[in-house]
């Protein structure tokens, strides 16, 4: 772990200027009546300006908790941030008080969710909700805010925005609501980081394709960084620049998107890609190469590699401790004894 922390710090000092957000050694636990759930364990990550980082993994891997730690949406209690720092533009967000965090939310750090209906206020018109965000961050009058809102809705490609601003959230389709949420995220003066938590999971595929394309275009146009939380490797392949594969609260593999798909190295990453029926290798296959077993109970998991019980290459050492980082290539790292060869003797 030390080595890992050291190298990330070194990396940070080299390219400090480009880095928008860095999380250092973050651990988050939940204290439930059944015991302590270690949801995120010693996680490090960096997001550069204008970059899309995807956190990918299945349910319970800690990807959403990681994102919620950034703008402090983890419910406390039962949640508790055990250790670590979240450095955003030189400040540790975990040291800020409620007021400071609230002013950061929706201003420099915005978030869009899986189900936009639950994050839009059902009793206010779309236009008013977005205009309110404008007025909160700029010193402008309502008329001007409305004009800007219409322009913004145009930017996120909502047809006939002059009429749409008068609609209530339930009058919009799922895709349109997600667009409105994105517009709201862009209403701040200088959008820095957009956290997109499963933004397309509730949408149909043709609509998903539209939203992913929109996020990609906006990112390029306004140099925004995106933290994309998803379970869908296809979505990762379409949008991410960098990828972190998570499993049971741990980082398993980290790479840029091209080398991850070209050379998936962790047995879990491989298994995840092999589980996809759309994988090209299955053109004439009759069965999928599935990962056996299920995710372990986070309550009982100790220091072992959490994937050990499902891994085809599991060794004794995997049961004893979690491996250190192995760097395979520039920016491509993996945490696995099988890959680093240490457990083989």
């Amino acid at each position: 772990m030390d080595k890992d922390a050291y190298s990330s710090r070194k990396l940070a000092s080299d390219q400090n200027k480009d880095i928008l957000l860095s999380m250092e050694d973050i651990s988050v636990s939940f204290y439930t009546h059944r015991g302590i759930v270690k949801a995120v364990r010693n996680l490090n990550l960096q997001i550069k300006k204008g970059e899309t980082l995807a956190l990918v993994g299945e349910s319970g891997c800690g990807k959403s908790v990681t994102a919620h730690t950034i703008n402090q949406l983890v419910p406390m209690p039962p949640g508790k941030i055990e250790s670590g720092k979240v450095i955003f533009e030189g400040r540790n967000l975990l040291d800020l008080d409620d007021k400071e965090i609230a002013s950061l939310r929706g201003d420099r750090i915005s978030m869009i969710f899986q189900e936009p209906m639950t994050s839009l206020n059902p009793v206010f018109r779309i236009g008013d909700q977005i205009a309110d965000v404008f007025m909160a961050h700029h010193d402008i009058k309502k008329d001007e805010a409305m004009e800007k809102t219409v322009k913004l809705l145009e930017l996120v490609k909502i047809p006939a925005p002059e009429r749409r601003i008068k609609d209530y959230p339930h009058q919009l389709s799922g895709g349109m609501r997600q667009r409105a949420m994105i517009a709201m995220a862009l209403a701040s003066p200088e959008p820095g980081l957009l956290i997109a938590d499963e933004p397309t999971t509730a949408l149909d595929v043709t609509i998903q394709a539209q939203i992913l394309r929109l996020i990609n275009e906006l990112k390029q146009d306004i140099n925004m960084s995106v933290l994309l939380i998803t379970h869908d490797m296809g979505v990762v392949a379409e949008t991410a620049d960098k990828v972190i594969v998570m499993y049971a609260g741990r980082k398993m593999e980290e790479a840029d998107v091209y080398s991850l798909f070209e050379n998936p190295s962790h047995p879990y990453t491989q298994g995840l890609l092999n589980s996809l029926p759309s994988n090209k290798k299955y053109t004439n296959a009759t069965r999928l190469e599935a990962i056996k077993g299920t995710i372990p109970d986070l309550l009982t998991i100790g220091n072992e590699c959490p994937f050990e019980n499902r891994c085809p290459h599991a060794m004794t050492v995997c049961r004893e401790s979690f491996p250190d980082k192995t760097e395979l290539a520039d920016g491509h790292s993996v945490w696995c004894y099988f890959v680093d060869g240490k457990g083989k003797e």
Binding site: H33, R34, K292, G293, T294, D297, L299, T300, N309, R310
Partner: peptide, 25 residues
């Protein structure tokens, strides 16, 4: 058979019904 083991092992779920759990709470 090995798969059965994998699927149901490693789970530490108490053998409680909803009602018993409610009483416990």
């Amino acid at each position: 058979n090995t798969e059965i083991k994998e699927n149901t092992n490693k789970q530490s779920i108490e053998k409680n019904s909803l009602f018993k759990e409610a009483l416990f709470q």
